[in-house]
């Protein structure tokens, strides 16, 4: 009871990275709250997953193994999760802000009448005083996220409803092994007990899942462009520099929305969070929602013809100039100097 819980998402038979990241964060929160860490894994043919999950500090694994739970559809997963949450009453519930988590989370929160905060960039434990009622709440989950298009950062709390639910994007939290010998109790859940016959209304008739070809999260070098790069063609210049440096191309939301690059390349709160060795920001002014996704890069180089661009404040190097002039020079002098 009153534990920290994490919904573990399966991606074509493997536990998603974001779930491990959330377990790591969940473990820290559980230690602070002096409670247990629970993992919820729903799918089919789930033998042996406890061995993978235990080292991340999972104390109890609730495993629902049923053919109806794979592949994922909304209603059966909702029913099992809502049923288990009503019995176990976790105080915190975390899930990935993935296509699955963002489909399941709100449905579950509505069924439980619980608050849900999307796309948190930080989770902390803190207290709150309700001044009008002179009521003090201890050990609340602070759900911190950029808001309003990323121009401000808001701390959200759920004082009265449990669980306190939050989704977090992949890459925001760090995946850390807690204890290789951690003991994990497995509870096998009879999913059928929770299903309603109306849960099977949506039928999957076709499914094509492709391995994502683009993975900027683990790239040591990222050359990133903003809307100011101007076009798909101009982004080719960034691709050339990235290839040369053994890196990947990233982009701001505006550049993705404009169709200059693929959505998978979006860096920021609603995209991917990255921590490369070098982040080269080309014509990026630096909205908070973008900075939130790249500020932990080891070295930040900003190329901008606006000397006052907000991103320059967090950059190690600021190159004052136009992207189309500077990038070719970087290509040229990298080649010359690395010979």
């Amino acid at each position: 009871m009153n534990n920290v819980s994490v919904y573990c998402e399966l991606e074509e038979g493997k536990i998603a990275d974001v779930s491990f990241e959330l377990l790591s964060k969940g473990r820290t929160l559980a230690n602070q709250l002096n409670c247990k860490l629970e993992a919820y894994l729903f799918g089919h043919k789930l033998d042996g997953f406890e061995k993978e999950l235990a080292p991340y500090g999972v104390d109890i694994l609730y495993k629902a193994d049923d053919a109806h739970l794979s592949p994922y559809t909304t209603l059966p997963h909702t029913s099992v999760m809502v049923g288990l949450f009503k019995e176990n009453k976790p105080q915190v519930a975390l899930m990935g802000a993935t296509t699955i988590g963002r489909d399941l989370g709100p449905r579950v929160s509505s069924a439980l009448g619980s608050g849900l905060t999307a796309d948190c960039t930080e989770l902390e434990i803190g207290e709150h005083e309700e001044k009008k009622e002179k009521k003090i709440y201890n050990n609340l989950l602070y759900q911190i996220r950029p808001a309003f298009g990323g121009n401000i950062i808001a701390t959200i709390i759920n004082p009265d409803c449990r669980p306190q639910m939050a989704t977090v994007r992949e890459g925001v939290m760090k995946k850390v092994i807690y204890d290789l010998k951690h003991k994990c109790e497995v509870v096998n859940v009879d999913a059928k007990k929770y299903f309603d016959e109306t849960d099977f209304a949506v039928k999957i008739i076709e499914r094509h899942i492709e391995e994502s070809k683009i993975n900027i999260k683990n790239s040591p070098v990222i050359v990133s462009g903003g809307f100011g790069v101007g076009s798909k063609e101009n982004f080719q210049l960034l691709h050339r520099l990235a290839n040369l440096l053994g890196g990947e191309v990233g982009a701001t939301r505006a550049a993705v929305d404009a169709g200059f690059v693929e959505h998978e390349r979006q860096v920021g709160q609603t995209g991917v969070t990255v921590r490369p060795k070098v982040y080269i920001a080309c014509g990026i002014s630096g909205q908070i929602q973008h900075l939130a996704g790249m500020q932990e890069s080891s070295i930040i180089i900003s190329i901008n013809n606006d000397a006052n661009a907000p991103i320059n404040k967090i950059a190690n190097y600021v190159i004052n100039g136009k992207v189309e002039n500077v990038v070719p020079k970087m290509i040229k002098y990298f080649k010359e100097n690395s010979k």
Binding site: G115, T117, Q143, T155, N158, A292, K313, I314
Partner: peptide, 16 residues
Amino acid sequence: SPTKVKKVDNIVFQSK
């Protein structure tokens, strides 16, 4: 509304 905004901050990044 179960969620409440506790506070809103201007983000301040560590200047380098």
